[in-house]
């Protein structure tokens, strides 16, 4: 009996130790010295919602910088006017769409101005065109990129994520990626031709050149509004927020429905408990 108990104890301890150990290796393992810092997002946590001004700025960064190489095939112009997004006016969206040409073989000449119902046109006609223009690498599509990226956390912390509903690993990663370029590459680092050094990118050699510089995108300041800094850090935050919206456009509606459902379920469960207790009170032994 003593022997079996000690064997049990050894097993339990062994299991506990694995639990305490590092999480499965991640894409970040190559850059152990760079920890991805979590940012304070307006859409984080239970009560978080998108800041439409931030989404509008992020869209501007996307449109003026990212979109020259990255597609966003699932984005339609009308999405930009929908509730819970950048919420541009219908007229703004219509005017914006009209400035883009859509290839359409059913019309004379093969192109026509875009309408709000059209999808955002890709920068390259084919995947091969995209590769040819970017040194052999294909810039990934942005439609759901913020949910296709994430950060890994060591043991006890990822358990907490289930309780805090942390879902912002994607924008945290994108913000970190955009702010972690080192040009020129640190001494002693050999990069393949056409690659750039990034502290958090797996393997550190990324095909994308640093896309942002301070002052690259001109933010307009409305009357009586605080000017937003035109820095790489701010651009990165704004475009990461925009990409999160692009990946999860119904986040606000989803959370709002969630509050109603949770409230109903909790009240309902309470009533059910009272009924159940009353019903069972007549059963012998209860």
């Amino acid at each position: 009996m003593i022997k079996t108990k000690s064997i049990c104890a050894a097993f339990v301890m062994a299991l506990a130790l694995t639990g305490m150990g590092a999480l499965p290796a991640t894409a970040q393992e190559a850059g152990a010295e760079t920890v991805i810092a979590k940012q304070a997002w307006t859409f984080g946590g239970l009560f978080g919602t998108y800041d439409k001004h931030q989404l509008q700025r992020g869209f501007q960064v996307f449109k003026e910088v990212c979109a020259s190489c990255h597609s966003a095939n699932l984005l339609t112009y009308r999405n930009l006017a929908e509730d819970g997004g950048p919420e541009f006016s219908d007229a703004q969206v219509k005017a914006l769409a009209a400035t883009y040409k859509i290839s359409d073989r059913t019309v004379k000449g093969g192109t026509r101005p875009a309408t709000p119902a059209d999808h955002w046109p890709p920068p390259f006609a084919t995947e091969q065109d995209g590769r040819d223009a970017n040194g052999g690498s294909l810039p990934p599509d942005f439609s759901v990129i913020a949910k296709a990226r994430g950060i890994e956390e060591p043991f006890p912390w990822w358990v907490l994520d289930y309780f805090t509903a942390y879902q912002e690993g994607g924008p945290d990663y994108i913000h970190a990626l955009l702010t972690s370029f080192v040009e020129p590459a640190p001494a002693g680092v050999q990069l393949p031709p056409g690659k750039h050094f990034n502290k958090i990118f797996p393997g550190h050699a990324i095909s994308m050149p640093p896309p942002l510089t301070d002052g690259l995108v001109m933010y307009t300041v409305g009357k009586g509004e605080q000017p937003v800094p035109m820095t790489v850090d701010q651009y990165s935050k704004d475009v990461s927020a925009f990409l999160m919206w692009l990946s999860e456009p119904h986040l606000i509606a989803r959370k709002e429905a969630g509050f109603r459902v949770m409230l109903f379920l909790i009240v309902f469960a309470g009533l059910m408990y009272l009924v159940k207790r009353r019903l069972w009170s007549s059963v012998e032994g209860h």
Binding site: A148, Y162, Q167, K255, V261
Partner: peptide, 17 residues
């Protein structure tokens, strides 16, 4: 409901996006 409404993707793998 907690997972559905507040963390629908937390149980999945990011690579599947």
């Amino acid at each position: 409901a907690w997972f559905v409404f507040f963390a629908p993707d937390i149980l999945g793998d990011a690579s599947n996006y």
